[in-house]
Write a protein that binds this DNA or RNA. Structure first.
Lengths: 207, 207
DNA sequence: TCCTGTTTTAAACAAACGTTTAAATTTTAA
DNA sequence: TTAAAATTTAAACGTTTGTTTAAAACAGGA
């Protein structure tokens, strides 16, 4: 009993909730949706988690961590700027490709309910403590790159990748695209974005 | 009686619905929310519009048009590319600044319910018939700019602007920003984005 | 004035919502 | 084997949901 044998049921609820919340959002999800997706009785969601809200927070915190952890990890790598930027783009792209609803879900839930971003302080600290900021200043002082604040560069990187997937449904609808056609487009766009950003950073003296 | 004297009430409902839907999304909005915001009886929303869904579609179509019309207008202007790109960025920025919830609302509703993008064909036609595509090819053939598909360039422009406002709530939360601080950041970022994109397009031979 | 059609209201509707109950079932440890 | 604990179930709880009803209030023309 100690090391709960209910892990199975609890984890099944978590997985079902993760899927349904990501797909429909908090407001669009009902307790019965989750129970049905998990193949369990409705009452069990409130037996393991105490309410729909508490279950959501648990899932949301997990997804927020997934959303950030990889990026922070790369920011602290002891590698060159050019390589680091490429890695940041590639990682973000892969994360979005593997979890197409993640970004719009996170943005939407925070937009509608900002206090859900409870770990904001944690994210800020991790970003401030990273090597990235100092690395940018050093390279700029040496004249290797254009001088730019870390925040602007980060927003640049994630904007160009994440918006692709935020607007995916719209693109597919407007351009009569198949999933494969969109993937191909997104891949090409990723390459262009890497070019554009590195070009902006490194090829600034040619003017 | 002919030319309905109820225009007042109907428009009051529309305005209230627009505000509440933008703020809370379709799922998060109740009929009573709208009635209360409009200061009218609940039954009136179904008297003028036949259901919550029909009222939403009416508002949504109006917002989709607001979302696109300005952009299409600029795309067809008889002006140079550099100026056109700057105008596209500035217009998008102003639109997002005036309607901070518009973008995430549109993206979210289409993501959750793609068939709501009923006017997709219309948007595609307007884009395809615009001068922009041809303009890009001409300038590229003349060697004035780097060769790039119109779609990639458009996505570039809107990504960098719209994502700013999609992630606004998150930024404000993470960085303890005031509205004013965010506005200042966004303004600086807009300038950087214009530099980056024009630099990518026009300064490509310096390599 | 009274009549006709429009607009607004309070009240109610059935259905769906998140949640709880209390009993049934299964698991655990002695 | 047995009794206590943990898990699962069907059923119901009181609210809130979108929507409808039927009557009231209001308008303009005869």
């Amino acid at each position: 009993m100690r090391c709960s044998p209910s892990k199975n049921t609890e984890e099944r609820i978590r997985e079902a909730a993760r899927q349904v919340f990501l797909e429909k959002g908090f407001d669009g999800t009902t307790s019965r949706d989750i129970a049905e997706a998990a193949g369990i009785n409705i009452a069990l969601t409130n037996y393991y988690f105490r309410s729909k809200e508490k279950l959501f927070i648990s899932i949301f915190d997990e997804l927020i961590q997934l959303f950030f952890e990889g990026m922070f990890c790369i920011l602290n790598k002891p590698i060159g700027l050019r390589e680091k930027i490429t890695e940041l783009v590639e990682h973000d792209f892969q994360l979005m490709k593997s979890n197409p609803s993640l970004c719009i879900f996170v943005m939407n839930e925070i937009h509608r309910n900002p206090e859900r971003m409870a770990n904001a302080v944690e994210a800020r600290k991790q970003f401030q403590q990273s090597v990235f900021d100092e690395q940018l200043r050093r390279e700029a002082a040496l004249g290797h790159i254009r001088s730019i604040e870390a925040m602007h560069l980060m927003v640049m990187i994630v904007s160009n990748i994440q918006f692709l997937f935020i607007s995916k449904a719209m693109h597919i609808r407007i351009w009569h695209m198949s999933e494969e056609a969109f993937d191909a487009f997104a891949n090409r766009h990723k390459g262009i974005v890497i070019d554009m950003i590195t070009n902006y950073l490194f090829a600034f003296e040619s003017v």
